[in-house]
């Protein structure tokens, strides 16, 4: 199967990030690992693009971020741990409803119902 790259992911990235955080707080790299795991290795995301999306979610109060206290030997570079907020959870729930509707409509048109 062909990998799913950045262009195809556009528009769904934020919902996917919220979904990964439903499993608990995580830093950026851990979020990527969760995405890869859930996407069975078929997701191809440019990793630098992850953080702007997380910053947008944070500005919208849909995720909350705190700096970790330990740098684990990375010489001053700390990670931020992102967690889902109640607003983010509501957005995720709404996103799931929209997605089901989207798949149903497109599935009907393409003759390939999910």
């Amino acid at each position: 199967m062909e990998p799913i790259n950045g262009d195809k992911l556009r528009g769904h990235l934020e919902a996917m990030l919220l979904s990964t955080l439903e499993r608990g707080g995580a830093h950026g790299l851990e979020i990527l690992h969760r995405l890869e795991e859930a996407g069975c290795g078929l997701l191809r995301l440019k990793e630098g693009s992850l953080y702007p999306a997380l910053y947008r979610l944070e500005a919208a109060d849909e995720v909350k971020a705190v700096w970790e206290t330990e740098t684990h030997g990375r010489k001053g570079a700390r990670r931020r741990i992102y967690t889902l907020t109640a607003k983010g959870q509501r957005k995720l729930d709404a996103g799931r409803v929209e997605w089901r509707q989207f798949v149903k409509v497109l599935g009907g048109i393409l003759g390939a119902s999910a």
């Binding site: 830093h27 950026g28 790299l29 990793e47 630098g48 953080y51 740098t71 990375r74 001053g76 570079a77 700390r78 990670r79 931020r80």
Partner: peptide
Amino acid sequence: EELLAHVSG
């Protein structure tokens, strides 16, 4: 800082 932590990982 955050991106450096990421690329280090």
